[in-house]
Design a binder for these strands. Structure first.
Lengths: 334, 334
DNA sequence: AAGCAAGGGGTAAACGTTTACCCATTCTAA
DNA sequence: TTAGAATGGGTAAACGTTTACCCCTTGCTT
């Protein structure tokens, strides 16, 4: 069997209390005993049982995170940044995937909460349907939402200013002379889809552009981008530009236009959102709205720690301004 | 405070033992009591404390998984498939990212083992340097390696037959008349990099092709692909074809060739490995070796369950034959 | 020199479950 | 009818820690 702290104490000739004190450093212990306990622990290959510790302490030194779909490359990028931050404070991150399903999301959230994670970072699947999952989280567990949020649910949030981001894209296109600007997005069930849509409409209005352009709603995936591009291409007139709700959609759009020999950026301009790894590798490289991962992650951990330190402080929503990255899909430099 | 089983028992007017029996179904209980316990649990909003349960039972109904780098899209694809499988048996998956660092990998493995996961699925970072991390896993914890394995370490493995896969690519290129075939791969510190390399050399020898072609080793990332392509493009003669160690490299290669106006497939053929989501979306769409995720995941869970059921059965290595997907980067159909 | 504080060790309770064991009741079979 | 089995409930121990509490020793202050 794996050795317990009792074995360590026995071998070192001390009580378990002393052994625990040495191993956790929770109280001062005579140097002699310190070394003999450490020696004993080392020779036995002792590792503390994190389950027992968590039960006793009521905390686990672990943060849980749930993302909507790990296959969507934007989310791993956020996860990596969060992980790097957590590492600085020596905490572990356990990651779960909701597979775009609020039922699975609920079970993941509960699995993590049941295991006494000290905090929960969640990118909710749906602005409305994820509320149930989040409301079932025990109230003492701090929760921070990232990127997306749930409507009418009081928890901290940090994300990018989606409205502003889409606005940057639209303005850029308008400055290049585009007037008939189509919009291809995911269905409006996540908060980011909603905000990007309102961002689009407001920017169009602000710039005095016609807002009866083609606006198509599907999923945040490349297949949808292809399907949408097909619809745009077979319509009566090709738009001057296509604003996409995320980069995956945009990559699908580019692919379909290429297949149909519609040239980007000569015949039509295309923009994405997120600046995923492959945005710069697409052909042509994609003009997109960059999400500052590191900053998002830093704010996320800051919010979480603040919430852990003080439960009853007012909820915050932090929107970070994104920036536009101009590449060849709108005629920029490579 | 959140209610405990004691509260449930009290409210239902039974002992905690009975409450536990009802809630876990571990023994038959009179129907009356069953309903009153369930009623009590429901009205109190009782959720069992998974930490306490795990401590008492010594099992956690949880599988841990560690991947080398979650930002590499091949790994999330495997994770998703594994997750779907585990769901069938009602187990949870906690995922950790090693960030391509064997030190972090070690700490992740230990964090999971310390929390009494029932099994560990690991894609090791390095064929040699990851051995330390794996050897420190308590011997009662079942371990299955996926995709990559650690040399001289006795644990089950399931993956694709890398040698065979690369062989398919080389044969395909040879059948198209390519003779001067370059190879762009990651450095040989992961088992897959090694196996893909030997696969390449053997295939070249088998087909009687010159094996003094350019062979470049970097990382499994697109940036490396770009750098390597630059080197190939500026060499004295452009190879007939480039076999890449994975799709990310290949995408980088395609990008750089495009930038330099080297046409694929007219001037040079390119192949990848993995068939990630973006392989079909690259321009031109990438001919690649497809990894059967679902099958890999299924075998992985099967191995894990077998190992959990019986500790001392001989170690297995299962190599699944991959298939070639021909796309335009070697002149195939879109 | 006496009293008190501080330092540091041990004992045992507690965290929330599950389950071995015991016991009372009811049922079955001879 | 009665011995024995079967059914089902309760009591309490156990999982491996951490830590409140107690107590002894030492050293310092007056």
């Amino acid at each position: 069997m794996t050795p317990t702290i009792r074995d360590v104490a026995e071998r070192a000739g001390v009580s378990v209390a002393t052994a625990s004190r040495v191993l956790t450093g929770s109280r001062k212990v005579t140097p002699d005993l310190v070394t003999s306990v450490q020696e004993a622990a080392r020779t036995l290959g002792y590792r503390h049982n994190a389950v027992a510790r968590a039960l006793r302490r009521g905390r686990s030194n672990t943060i849980g995170m749930v993302v909507p779909e790990i296959g969507n490359p934007f989310f791993p990028a956020i996860v990596e940044a969060v992980e790097r931050r957590l590492q600085e404070s020596g905490r572990d991150l356990f990651l779960c995937d909701a597979q775009q399903d609020v039922g699975i999301e609920l079970s993941r959230v509960q699995a993590l909460a049941d295991r006494q994670v000290d905090g929960l970072i969640i990118i909710p699947v749906s602005a409305a349907a994820s509320r149930d999952a989040l409301e079932r989280i025990p109230h003492q567990t701090p929760v921070v939402q990232v990127d997306r949020f749930v409507e009418e649910y009081a928890a901290d949030w940090v994300g990018v200013d989606d409205e502003l981001g889409i606005g940057l894209a639209v303005e850029h296109l308008a400055s290049l002379g585009a007037r008939n600007i189509a919009f291809v997005n995911a269905k409006l069930d996540s908060s980011s889809a909603v905000q990007r849509y309102t961002g689009f409409k407001r920017a169009m209005a602000r710039l005095g552009l016609p807002d009866d352009t083609q606006q198509l709603f599907g999923t945040y995936r490349a297949e949808w981008g292809r399907a949408a591009a097909q619809e745009l291409a077979t319509g009566s007139v090709l738009p001057d530009a296509v604003v996409c709700g995320n980069d995956e959609i945009a990559v699908g759009v580019l692919r379909e236009f290429r297949r149909r020999q519609i040239r980007v950026p000569e015949d039509v301009l295309v923009t994405g959102f997120d600046d995923i790894r492959f945005a710069a590798l697409a052909d042509p490289p994609l003009t997109t709205v960059r999400q500052p991962h590191e900053q998002l992650a830093a704010e996320c951990i800051r919010l979480l720690d603040a919430r852990m330190a003080e439960q009853d402080t007012p909820v915050q929503r932090i929107a970070i301004a994104p920036s536009l990255v101009v590449r060849e899909s709108t005629g920029g430099q490579s």
